[in-house]
Simulated scan of single mutants.
Amino acid sequence: MFVRNGTSELKKVLICPPTYLEEAAPINEISKKYADQPLDREKLSAEFEQLVEAYRQAGIKVEQQTATPEMTNAVFARDFGGCVKEGYILGRFKKDLRFPERKAYADKMKKLGIPKITEVKEGYFEGGDFAFLTEKIIAVGIIDRTNEKGFEEIKAGLSPLGYEVYPVPADPRYLHLDMCFNLVDDHLAVAYKEGLPTSFLQLLEKLEIEIIPVPEEAIFKHGCNLESLGAKRVLSLKQNTAVNQSLRSHGMKVIELDITETLKAGGGPHCMTFPLQRG
């Protein structure tokens, strides 16, 4: 078994150092603000090591992708696909900048012995849009980097395995679903409710998933970009003071990361993490 759901105990992750992330390429609303500004390489490296250490302290095995010069944004490991119990889904990047990552990550997964169960060949799909709601119900954001065709390909690949896959369209400015919605425990999520479709909110209600609401501006400060570790533990950013307080009031143990430089390229802890084993 590889990844059973989105909130059970996280056991192994795949991440990639930001070795060649030199400047924030203007490929999303956040990175546009820092476009062509050199990023602090020392700080980027320290933030990555902080993430590695947080996982090790939590007893989670860390696998690392080898960084290469042509994969500038590979630090956001989440985006090459999605992982379920039976294996992984290989996505397809929309931006040319990220094309080289596809083969590199597919090769890495082969080395790790994780089978590819389906892939997106014609449409677009990035892993930041992939979210478990329950063990057999998956939400897929159709926002900026995943389109209808990509969604249909994922649904066709996962349905024979018994998965229900639901589309979640939202404002393209939000980039990925994990920027405006994140499940942190079996029945608890953080989300900007007003930016999500009524049908999706009704589905969450039916599944008895409580939402900790965040304002729209929190999306662009990574207020929803959290990583569930299971056992009521969650990785969050130190700057997410209101969100972290709400999580704690709901019985969650919040592990705070002091990450700011990496965020300028448009991704947070969830974006930086591809789960390999959870259950």
Results as ranks from 00 to 15, higher is better:
164 E>T: 13
46 A>P: 06
117 I>M: 04
191 A>D: 00
266 G>E: 01
124 Y>Q: 06
92 R>Y: 13
89 I>T: 08
112 L>Q: 05
95 K>C: 10
79 D>L: 04
66 T>K: 14
83 C>R: 07
82 G>V: 06
16 C>S: 10
123 G>R: 08
233 R>D: 13
29 E>C: 00
170 A>D: 00
17 P>C: 07
229 L>Y: 02
233 R>L: 12
6 G>L: 08
175 L>K: 01
79 D>A: 06
97 L>K: 10
241 T>E: 15
155 K>P: 04
146 T>F: 00
232 K>H: 12
25 A>S: 13
71 M>H: 02
234 V>G: 01
105 Y>N: 08
138 I>G: 01
91 G>D: 05
11 K>V: 11
34 Y>M: 10
270 H>E: 11
40 D>F: 05
77 A>W: 01
10 L>V: 03
143 I>L: 01
143 I>Y: 00
157 G>W: 03
121 K>M: 09
223 G>D: 07
51 L>A: 04
212 I>G: 04
44 L>F: 05
160 P>R: 03
71 M>V: 10
121 K>P: 04
256 E>V: 04
119 E>M: 12
174 Y>P: 03
24 A>C: 08
105 Y>Q: 11
269 P>D: 05
20 Y>W: 05
148 E>F: 11
17 P>H: 02
136 K>I: 10
171 D>Q: 09
57 Q>R: 10
106 A>I: 06
85 K>S: 14
78 R>E: 13
206 K>L: 13
200 F>R: 05
5 N>D: 14
3 V>L: 04
121 K>R: 09
272 M>G: 03
3 V>P: 02
114 I>Y: 08
139 A>I: 13
254 V>K: 06
253 K>N: 13
225 N>E: 08
272 M>C: 02
34 Y>G: 03
57 Q>P: 06
153 E>C: 07
121 K>H: 02
131 A>Q: 15
274 F>T: 06
87 G>I: 02
88 Y>I: 02
147 N>F: 14
62 V>Y: 07
61 K>L: 15
243 V>S: 07
260 T>S: 15
236 S>W: 09
220 F>L: 11
46 A>N: 10
90 L>P: 01
68 T>C: 11
189 A>D: 08
70 E>M: 14
103 K>N: 12
270 H>K: 14
190 V>K: 05
158 L>T: 00
261 E>S: 11
142 I>V: 09
173 R>M: 14
257 L>V: 12
8 S>K: 06
151 F>W: 03
249 S>E: 14
109 M>K: 00
199 S>H: 08
233 R>K: 15
86 E>S: 09
163 Y>H: 08
20 Y>Q: 02
198 T>E: 15
234 V>T: 01
115 P>R: 11
21 L>M: 09
278 R>N: 08
108 K>C: 14
171 D>C: 10
118 T>H: 09
220 F>C: 03
35 A>N: 05
167 P>K: 04
106 A>C: 04
125 F>M: 07
89 I>D: 08
